[in-house]
């Protein structure tokens, strides 16, 4: 199988990392309805089994729950073996990450390692092992969900932002690498999305439903876009935020 795999083709397999999140659930369902095979990876196996059943009934060729813990590399190997044994194009979408309140991290700086493992190094380590399989087959897409918080460090969540910034840079390099073999990588930077993480948070505006993010991801996959903001206008919001000179920015609390 070396032919590039396009939307709707049979034989696409998707590994969804962090599949219990609402954005991941929305994407999994849409992939299921177009007949993809799915490996739903995360920690809450009971919940993943429920999502896997839901995806099978929505038309997934196969949907299985697999254990994945970004902080426990021992969970990576079985997933990689499972992927290697799957025929067709291999794809992955990364939704993992954690955003403890900055104040908690200030009180306990050892939390930084966990945030960086969840949002950057854990998934990066798995993707690093997955990349050769995509290269070998000459197809497939890796979707890395970052955050607009990674575009500039802010007082409110700069540890999370730093981890995401690292992940963005990693995704950029991965894209540079994969494109040589015909595979692809997409960096997704969501703005405010209506998830369990943002439910009830103050200061949310223009909140997008998870289904809109899933649609944007599938469109980016179809058009082989490189870096997307979702909803799209966040590109412009972040352009402005990035353009604020540091002497001014450092005094702001946005």
């Amino acid at each position: 199988m070396t032919a590039p795999n396009r939307t709707g083709d049979a034989g696409e397999c998707w590994l969804i990392l962090g599949a219990t999140s609402s954005m991941a659930r929305a994407l999994s369902r849409k992939l299921a309805e177009r007949g993809a095979s799915l490996l739903l990876a995360g920690r809450d196996m009971t919940d993943l089994e429920a999502s896997a059943a839901d995806c099978r009934l929505r038309g997934a060729a196969m949907a299985e729950a697999v254990r994945f813990d970004a902080r426990d590399p021992d969970t990576f190997e079985p997933i990689l073996e499972r992927m290697a044994a799957t025929s067709g194009s291999l794809n992955a979408a990364v939704f993992v990450g954690s955003m403890p309140p900055q104040a908690e991290i200030d009180a306990d700086p050892s939390m930084i390692e966990g945030v960086v493992s969840d949002s950057f190094t854990g998934p990066a380590r798995l993707l690093q092992a997955l990349a050769p399989m995509l290269e070998e087959r000459g197809s497939g897409t890796i979707v890395g969900v970052g955050s607009v918080a990674g575009d500039r460090g802010r007082v409110g969540n700069y540890v999370y932002g730093a981890a995401k910034a690292g992940f963005h840079t990693y995704m950029s390099g991965l894209r540079n690498r994969l494109t040589r073999s015909g595979a692809h990588a997409i960096t997704v930077k969501p703005g405010f999305v209506d998830t369990a993480m943002t439910w009830g948070l103050d200061g949310m505006f223009l909140v997008a439903p998870p289904e809109a993010v899933a649609d944007a991801i599938l469109k980016a996959e179809r058009k082989r876009q490189n870096v997307i903001y979702t909803p799209f206008f966040w590109r412009y919001i972040m352009m402005i935020i990035r353009a604020v000179p540091e002497p001014i920015f450092k005094k702001l609390s946005i």
């Binding site: 219990t20 609402s22 659930r25 809450d44 919940d47 429920a50 369990a196 439910w199 009830g200």
Partner: peptide, 29 residues
Amino acid sequence: MTWKTVEYAGWGRFYRAKGELARPERAST
């Protein structure tokens, strides 16, 4: 967060309420 203060209404939009809603995504929650 668990609770969000929301103004919501029935389908007829005549009766309205303000209160806190939780929106669990998993059975364990």
